[in-house]
Amino acid sequence: MDHAALLALFDRDLREGARPDGPGDARVERVGAVVRQTAGAPGWSGVLWSALDEDTADAAIAEQVGHYTGLGLEFEWKLYGHDRPATLGRRLRAAGFTPGPQETLMLGEISALDLDAEPPRGVRVEPVTDAHGVGLVADVHEQAFGRDSSWLRAELLARLAADPGTVVAVVAMAGAEPVAAARLELVPGTPFAGLWGGGTVQGWRGRGIYRALVAHRAHTAVARGHTYLRVDASSQSRPVLERLGFAALTSTTPYVRTP
């Protein structure tokens, strides 16, 4: 892969040319040199892309703060390592944003990935199509990440009901026990699909389930006509993804501001 060209394609299709990622009232708009999404709960609101410099950054930040604060919404400024100006992170912190853990944007051309992976014996991968399956995914999320998953329940139910062509969720079952879960987010009209929420409960890690879920979703993405997979990878998942053939292109850090 030509990493620079692929990163430019990613910026063009998924950031500057973003479209709403959920049903209902979510909207994407370009305001000056900023592209943002605004959505009511449980949707995601935040800044997706910007083209700022030292002279324009502070005013653009203040404008976004005013927009979301006026709506009473928490929002995220999704900052990538190649975004400009180089001082943007510092300026966001000065404006009241709190940075989350830094992750790595990884991209992989699906045809070049090592996808020869099956779940371990006794574990099966099942598609999620109804409220029961969504509940299993949310339960795994809470156990794997130690965070409340009420937003995930609401969002997945809404997406599966209103826009099922843009999301695929799966759960790995050991008998009647959900042991891992993940979702694939498809972006129609682009070559990209995204891997999100891959988590395995304690006691089932290190058995190849995460790798099997990556392979399962990759095959689904190809069947839906997509060429590339993107992942915001944690430090734990990055080594696994690198062994599968994903390339690390830049960092990504969520800066969150609560009214």
Score class of each variant (00 low, 15 high):
P85T: 10
G245W: 13
Y228D: 04
G24K: 03
D55C: 10
G245A: 14
Q202P: 00
V222M: 09
T200R: 03
G194K: 07
G89D: 04
D130G: 05
G43R: 00
P99K: 11
L160Y: 08
R93H: 09
R27T: 11
A94Q: 11
L229K: 05
L92Y: 12
R93D: 08
G208L: 04
A8R: 15
E63I: 09
D58S: 13
V128P: 02
V256D: 03
L249I: 12
R12I: 03
H82W: 13
A223C: 10
E63P: 06
A212E: 03
G17V: 01
S235D: 15
Y210R: 00
L52Q: 05
Y68I: 13
H216M: 08
W151R: 07
G70F: 11
A233W: 10
A218P: 01
E242D: 07
Q143Y: 07
S235F: 12
D11R: 09
V65K: 09
L6C: 15
D163V: 09
Q64W: 05
S149C: 01
A161N: 13
P259C: 15
H3F: 10
V167I: 09
L241T: 01
L244I: 05
A248V: 03
A161F: 02
G245M: 08
A182R: 12
G32T: 09
E54C: 09
A193D: 13
L48Q: 10
V34P: 07
D25M: 01
E29R: 15
D11A: 07
P23R: 03
V28A: 04
L229A: 04
A174K: 03
L6P: 02
A112C: 09
S45V: 02
S111V: 15
W196K: 14
D114Y: 05
V256R: 11
A33G: 14
G197P: 02
P119A: 06
P99N: 04
H219I: 02
V35E: 01
A215T: 02
R93S: 03
Q236S: 10
K78S: 06
R15G: 08
F10V: 09
